[in-house]
Design a protein around this nucleic acid. Structure first.
Length: 285
DNA sequence: GCCCAGGTATAAA
DNA sequence: TTTATACATGGG
């Protein structure tokens, strides 16, 4: 296992000693929708925590306090998982190694369950650029200001809105988001969670089949969205989201394979495969 | 205009 | 149980 070198700098926390880590691979691979690249690096918000993070010659520089890094970002970016060992375990599957070659620096982010639920409800039959826009408007409309960007004090960051902040709204209230028919789904999810009918922390602890079934009682949550919530929002690395494209690609790339064949971290393998499929549309068309 | 996008609910076979 | 279709929105 590699050793993280965490040092405090004036600008933030510098993390050296990371291998198999890339901000672009991680933040632009369709698993989260609130980070964008700009001239300073990657800027975004997770929950109610704004962050600027960038790669330097010495390592990855997180513009945050040591406390925020240790208590949140370190876990969010999955920095303590041994991806090198994972990679070793994948060597036996040449097709998977080929997939990983296109984005070897992917880390599966450990996002908030509620945020992941709403984000992937919005993702259905939608494209990443538009998903980002809808989520951005959702936070701007219904989230509370949660600080300022460290380098651009005129820019306000907004938290992801709580279930309670959405539960009392109407579809008309959500119209400015331009989320289409998904607005009703967002409201159903918000009400169920706000009322306590759905306890996301409890769902996260259930055996996978029960957790899936529970999530799918939410309107607009089918097998695909449920699987995304489990993987990205509940740190269930054995979850394996499959979209229509990937189902077909799996047959040619991994004939006869099931998600279980990818082991306890099948979901991470899935992220490599997903990324590869997006860059090879001819594979599935 | 047409097709597509990290799908799902619904009805019908 | 599987298959067909509508669904709102915006970019190519």
């Amino acid at each position: 296992m590699e050793v993280l070198e965490v040092t405090e700098k004036a600008e933030g926390i510098l993390v050296g000693g990371l291998s198999l880590f890339s901000l672009e691979d991680t933040l632009d691979c369709g698993q989260c929708f609130r980070f964008r690249r700009d001239a300073d690096g990657w800027r975004g918000v997770a929950g109610s925590r704004p962050l600027l993070v960038r790669e330097t010659g010495e390592g990855v520089l997180f513009s945050c306090t040591p406390e925020a890094f240790e208590s949140f970002w370190r876990g969010y970016f999955d920095l303590d998982r041994d991806y090198a060992a994972l990679r070793e375990s994948y060597l036996a599957m040449p097709a998977l190694r080929e997939c990983a070659r296109y984005a070897p620096g992917i880390r599966v982010l450990r996002q908030d369950a509620w945020e992941a639920l709403i984000s992937f409800i919005i993702s259905q039959n939608n494209n990443v650029r538009r998903i980002q826009g809808i989520v951005s408007r959702l936070c701007r409309q219904f989230g509370t200001p949660c600080g300022e960007d460290p380098l651009e004090p005129d820019r306000t960051a907004y938290a992801f809105p709580s279930p309670e902040a959405l539960a009392g709204r109407s579809e008309d209230d959500l119209a400015p988001l331009r989320a289409g028919w998904r607005a009703g789904y967002i409201l159903d999810a918000a009400r169920r969670v706000a009322l306590g009918e759905i306890d996301l922390a409890a769902v996260a602890a259930l055996p996978l089949p029960e957790a899936r079934a529970r999530l799918q009682t939410i309107r607009g949550v089918g097998p695909k969205v449920a699987e995304c919530v489990l993987l990205y929002g509940m740190a269930r690395m054995e979850a394996f989201p499959l979209d229509v494209w990937m189902k077909r690609a799996m047959k040619t790339l991994f004939p006869g394979c099931t998600p279980a064949d990818f082991g306890e971290c099948a979901g991470i393998a899935q992220q490599y495969i997903f990324h590869y499929c997006r860059r090879h549309p001819s594979l599935v068309r």
